[in-house]
Design a protein around this nucleic acid. Structure first.
Lengths: 207, 207, 207, 207
DNA sequence: AATGAATGAGCATTCATTCAT
DNA sequence: TATGAATGAATGCTCATTCAT
């Protein structure tokens, strides 16, 4: 399976990966047959099994690539930002942008979560994403910028808002990514209470 | 297909619905065959097709029931609460509790979202949930309790946090539902900034 | 797989077993496809998998039945014979007769021996056959009727001659079973030396 | 297809023949794919089809070589022995020794017998082996050393005992070749009866 | 209402062979 | 000579659905 591939072979493999990612995203894992893939690419069935051990293995590979790529995008967006809150904000924006720019991969990540065989991989990826956000959350708390709470809960909350808004507003709603990103940032940082109500709540808690 | 059923028939049908819901949730829609279901129930194939037109129809029915039930739980929790913010809080708590108490149906809702045929139903359900939350958000804004923002974005944000924390903390993390509910309420109402940082941010925006 | 079968079902299963045994014997295990079988029987593919878990399992079942049947034939032939040498003779005759009457199963037994998955079963069967012959050989030795030698070697020798002659003379040669049986009995009991030469050899060994 | 090969080419061809013989013997004809062979040898598919027209042709060639080699071994063992009974004995010993020394080819001969396409070749080979033994049997009878009986039956009997004991005692049993050879010689020459019983039987038949 | 039996299109995968380089 | 790439028919097996009883 770890084959030595010529340049031509590598191009073919990529072609299959990309085409399959789109098909899987559009139709689901099971409804997409290997025949669909090779017919769609106009090649013989053997080609598929020359490059991949199995349909499952192909999917796994697509999934891993997508997760790697999303993570890279997040890291790059944060790279040189000293302020932990701004790092979080930029992470949110980068995530929404990536989910928008790679709609089929967004769908794929969701898809994979519902398939017994792949679910653990997605869970790991999500937990990794939360773990990646964790240091920024903690740094923000240490600096007195972020309210003290279980930082892991906070991290998951951030991711939950971000992904839901990206999905509903951008992917399903067809509106620009900025709108979702702004909404998510604002929701995450401020919560939903008005300043007045928030103050009352804070006072009550502190009392 | 809408058959008039005897009492015994209704019991049978319910038995199938419940068993199938658990199997679908555990294994997925495609990997669960009709044979699995009837074998698991110890009945012949004919029984299945006596009560349901098709596997797809069965799934649709389970899905609709689950959505109906979740919505009912949310409405009941809110019923007599005059304060819109508290209505939101109680909606969050009721959702987490339901997702915890009906784990297999939670899984099913996610599952259905990734299957082309059922996705529209789930999207409708989610949009319905947001629409259900909308009046409370708007009422909160009108009363000056909730920060002014696109109320639909806010509603989706609430649902995003709630579901993500319910999933990660309760379903995957195995911790008590209260923990997730508290985390979600706090995250939703307050956001993540510390009061000081929040004040600075508010002032700056207002300026 | 252990299904409760109606009378009709049992007839079907037997039909498949018999047809398959003949096809396997004629063409070999691998060259006989499940499609061959169901097409030959004029039924749909599902029928096959209703009655058998797999092609391999079907073959195993045929094999086990054949071995059981051959063994039963041998035991019946010997049943009431008090003289151990005559028991051996009758065992030889019964084996040749069975191999002749069940040519396809003879071929199947040979076939199975060359297929990694089934070889152990055939080896066991052959060893069982030798073990079945063993008591008679030993009884013959105890009674002074059979020359003293490793009784297991003797048993395998008997089986070797019997099967080879049955195969070459009857199955491949197309001559009557009696001819092979007579030849085998005579070969086994007397060896090939003339009485004179045998005596000389005996004397020499004894000296 | 009969290519003129360079020295290097001949080495390659031999390498393939030897490797393939072992693989076929270990796994069977059908379960051994051309891909198995070329992967095992670390060469490309083209190499295979440069030296052999097809997998079938390769197998045929291996088979013919094995039969030729076994026959040569038998002839050499007998070469200068004037006594026909001793020629037979030495033929038996040489056969057992060859089957032991070329275990994979022994397996291959058996294997080939069960594959429709190759069975005739094996049958021919076996008949040839019997035909090879025939003159010695006849000579023995003419000299009064071997009991009068159908010489072809006798020849097949000899081969039957020899191969069965070689297989059971040496190949499957893992015991030394001499043990099988001694057992076979003794069985073939003397049969199984004790001298006393043999005499009674001879007298009765003669009477 | 219910069962066991049957259908046949469809699926993932294999494999002998050929081709382009 | 040799390689990696490609072909496509064939294989074992599954499964939603229907049928006969």
């Amino acid at each position: 399976m770890p084959r030595r591939l010529t340049a031509r072979g590598q191009r073919r493999q990529r072609e299959i990966l990309d085409f399959a990612a789109r098909r899987f995203a559009a139709q689901g894992y099971h409804p997409t047959s290997v025949a669909d893939l090779v017919d769609g690419l106009g090649v013989g069935k053997g080609v598929f099994y020359w490059y991949f051990d199995s349909k499952e293995e192909l999917f796994r590979q697509i999934l891993a690539e997508a997760q790697r790529d999303l993570r890279r995008a997040q890291r790059q967006a944060i790279a040189d930002e000293p302020d932990p809150v701004r790092r979080i904000e930029q992470g949110i924006r980068a995530s929404v942008a990536w989910l928008d720019a790679n709609r089929h991969l967004s769908a794929l990540l969701e898809l994979a979560r519902t398939e017994e065989r792949f679910a653990p991989l997605v869970h790991q990826g999500e937990d990794q994403a939360a773990a990646d956000a964790l240091p920024h959350v903690k740094a923000g708390m240490a600096a007195g910028l972020i309210r003290r709470a279980d930082p892991l809960v906070v991290a998951h909350g951030i991711l939950g808002v971000t992904e839901r808004l990206a999905r509903k507003i951008v992917l399903e709603g067809g509106r620009p990514a900025e709108e979702a990103a702004d909404g998510a940032v604002s929701f995450v940082l401020d919560g939903i209470l008005s300043p007045a109500a928030a103050n009352r709540r804070t006072v009550r808690e502190a009392g």
